[in-house]
Amino acid sequence: MNTPIQPKAAWLKKIKWDEHGLVPVIAQEAGSNDVLMFAWMNREALAKTVELGEAVYWSRSRKKLWHKGEESGHVQKVLEIRLDCDEDVVLLKIEQAGGIACHTGRHSCFFQKFEGDAQEGDWQNTEPVLKDPSDIYEKAGKA
């Protein structure tokens, strides 16, 4: 029987939550070690992530829990959860379903690379769109 983890569990108290009760989270792909995305979690999201073995984040824009892949199908299976030395950043080692983590249809959210110098530099797209976002989010009606 899988007993839900209470958001006030002792292990959650070790984390240094910000003034909004959030902690930054980095999702890193196991194997390639690619950093796929950055998001936020509250206590409930982290407890739910541990309970399900899949990434659940806190959406600041929607002000609700966001189970990664609930609309796109691009679920993140969590293999490891790590806490940094300052205890204020969480790292998820994940397996990314469908190879797409970004809502733009790319493998990683970090697809823009700065090239050039301080005067003439600009951001360049370095990863292709693997799937058109309108195809991914067609049922949900948003990209």
Rank of each mutant, 00 (worst) to 15 (best):
E51C: 09
W17C: 02
K63Y: 10
E54R: 14
E54N: 06
S32M: 02
W17H: 00
H74Y: 14
V89Y: 13
Q124W: 01
V50G: 11
H74T: 15
V35S: 00
S32E: 00
G116R: 15
I26H: 09
H74D: 08
H20K: 13
V35C: 01
L91P: 13
H74N: 15
E71Y: 07
E29L: 01
H107Y: 07
P128G: 15
A30K: 14
K131A: 01
K68T: 11
K113S: 02
K113E: 01
G69Y: 10
E70I: 14
S108C: 11
A30H: 08
I15T: 04
T126Q: 03
Q28H: 08
V129Q: 05
E80Y: 12
A9W: 11
R60P: 04
K113A: 03
E138T: 09
D86T: 10
L79S: 07
L92Y: 01
G121C: 02
T126W: 01
E44V: 04
E44L: 15
H103Y: 05
D86N: 12
L36E: 02
E127N: 08
P128Y: 00
I5P: 03
K68C: 13
S108H: 04
A45D: 01
A97I: 11
L92W: 06
G73H: 11
D135Q: 15
P128V: 09
V56G: 02
L83A: 04
G141M: 09
K64Q: 12
R43F: 01
F38I: 12
Y137A: 14
Y137E: 05
C102V: 06
G121I: 05
R62V: 03
E127L: 13
A39K: 10
I81V: 15
T126S: 08
Q6E: 12
P4D: 03
C85H: 07
D18T: 08
G73S: 10
Q119F: 06
K8W: 04
A9M: 14
E54L: 07
A9L: 15
A97M: 10
V90H: 05
S108E: 07
E44I: 08
R43Y: 02
A27I: 09
K77L: 14
A47T: 00
N42R: 07
K13D: 04
V89I: 13
A27W: 02
A27G: 08
I26S: 05
W40H: 06
G98Y: 11
V75S: 00
G116K: 13
Y57P: 09
Y137G: 14
A143I: 13
E54Q: 08
C109D: 09
Q76H: 15
C85I: 04
R60A: 02
E29D: 01
K113P: 00
K77G: 01
P7E: 11
K139T: 07
G69C: 04
